[in-house]
Design a binder for these strands. Structure first.
Lengths: 117, 117
DNA sequence: CATATAGGGTACTTTTAGGTAACTATGGAA
DNA sequence: TTCCATAGTTACCTAAAAGTACCCTATATG
């Protein structure tokens, strides 16, 4: 049984890692299909996306809904437990925006906009 | 010049990684010497500790104060900019505690208490 | 019959993170 | 004189994370 030296480690085990917070920030804006997530995260590979989604699902943070059709359709959304992270995610997003503004000369150049529709 | 697909990535670049949030959570409780941090984080090696502290310092999140004495004394504390993360860190800690309580049968067994004094 | 589709799985390789151990400085104590 | 303490640095090596390339399914379309 794994032990923590400080409780925040338990939170990091769930939302730590390179992609999980980003995935959750997208899901906060609504249910998303796998292909939408891939489009929103051009840097992620299929393998990593699936892997991170599986782990989030295992931690009961997101819900995976499989539609029985061909070609497949799978939708991901936050669970109630996932929604308990909303404030943290919102603050992180906001802090990130401020950090970009504070740190870079041309903040608007730092974010590659991806159409949400 | 590195670009982000979503601003939260900028936040993750600063506080992402295995140790940074943990370090910051300790520093929220006050200025700490290197040896204190090592004691509070039994799992971290000297090398990783120094490395993470350097990166946090470079991002202007923590302050490194070197006392000119032998044996050396170095103290780390949050900068004003570091304090702007306080709410996020507090929420993460709190979420971690809740997560432990929710997830494990004997939550109190999950945290190896380390004396703060 | 060939092909595209969406959402995967998997074996293999590369890259990165992290660990280990040895080394540094300096002044005071044993 | 030798050792200890603190806070490092560095070279080297291993382990973990991530990338690449390929495979699968089952239906619809041309």
């Amino acid at each position: 049984m794994k032990k923590y030296n400080i409780p925040v480690e338990a939170a990091l085990e769930v939302i730590g890692g390179k992609w999980k917070v980003v995935i959750l920030c997208h899901l906060i804006k609504g249910k998303k299909r796998t292909s939408e997530l891939k489009r929103l995260m051009p840097g992620i590979t299929q393998k990593m996306l699936t892997q991170q989604l599986r782990e989030l699902e295992e931690d009961n943070v997101i819900l995976r809904e499989v539609y029985n059709q061909v070609p497949p359709k799978v939708e991901y959304s936050l669970t109630d437990y996932g929604w308990s992270l909303k404030q943290i995610l919102d603050l992180l997003c906001h802090w990130g925006e401020q950090h970009i503004e504070k740190t870079f000369d041309n903040p608007e150049d730092m974010v590659v906009q991806i159409n949400e529709e």
